[in-house]
Amino acid sequence: MKLYVLNIIQPVGEIPPPEVLEPVMAELAEVRRDLERQECWVFGRGLEQPEASTVVCMRGDEVIATDGPWTEGKEFIGGITVVKVVDLDAALKVAARFTQVTGLPIEVRPFQGEV
């Protein structure tokens, strides 16, 4: 088995109103329950908006923290889901379910090594 992260790519901007967002979240909860039944679900969570980020890095010998995202962009990773599946094809099938529900692009990336 292999671990994959599914990064949900969101556009920067206003969060959809509850009447739009709540049905999507309900469908995503059903996808999660299905993955849990299949014992594929590892972890998943939404992320705060990019402006809530803090970047920690080295500047010479000094560690500094800077408010804001690493890079500015029109899109950001709005949430992640980690799944444990047999191969990339299985991870892509899970990602397809997420993109069908959200309408958003999903980046699928394997973790290094096997589980």
Rank of each mutant, 00 (worst) to 15 (best):
A90R: 02
V108H: 05
Q49P: 07
G103K: 03
P69F: 07
C57D: 11
G113P: 10
V86L: 13
V42G: 09
R33Y: 06
P105T: 03
P105M: 10
Q100G: 01
V85A: 05
V101Y: 00
G78I: 03
L47E: 14
V115F: 13
G68T: 12
W41A: 10
P69W: 10
F111R: 09
A96P: 11
I106E: 05
F43V: 13
F111K: 11
Q10L: 13
P17K: 08
K84D: 10
R37H: 01
L28W: 04
Q112A: 14
E114G: 07
V108Q: 06
L6G: 02
P105Y: 03
L92N: 04
V101N: 01
E72V: 00
V55H: 07
P69M: 12
C40D: 04
T71L: 15
I9R: 06
V85M: 04
V20Q: 07
L35F: 00
V115N: 12
V85I: 03
M1S: 10
V85C: 06
V86R: 12
D67M: 11
E75F: 09
L104Y: 02
E27I: 00
S53R: 12
K74I: 10
V108F: 02
I80W: 05
T81V: 12
E22V: 10
K2S: 04
T66E: 12
Y4I: 00
V24N: 01
T81R: 01
V86Y: 08
T71P: 08
T102M: 01
C57P: 05
V20Y: 00
V63S: 13
P11C: 13
V108P: 06
G68Q: 08
L104W: 02
V63L: 15
Q49S: 07
E30W: 00
E36H: 05
R59I: 10
D67L: 09
T81N: 05
I106P: 03
D34E: 13
V94N: 03
F43Q: 06
P11G: 06
F76R: 14
R109W: 00
P16L: 11
D61Y: 11
G103L: 10
E14K: 08
E27D: 15
M1C: 10
K2Y: 04
P105A: 09
I8T: 05
D67Q: 08
Y4D: 01
R59N: 14
V63K: 12
P16N: 14
D89G: 11
T99A: 06
Q100R: 01
N7P: 01
Q100N: 06
P23E: 02
R37E: 03
T99K: 03
G68D: 09
E72S: 11
Q100A: 13
T71D: 11
I8H: 05
N7T: 01
R45W: 09
V55I: 15
V85S: 00
Q10T: 03
R37I: 06
E51C: 12
V63D: 08
S53F: 14
V63H: 04
M1N: 03
V115P: 12
A52I: 08
V85F: 04
L47T: 10
V86Q: 14
F43T: 04
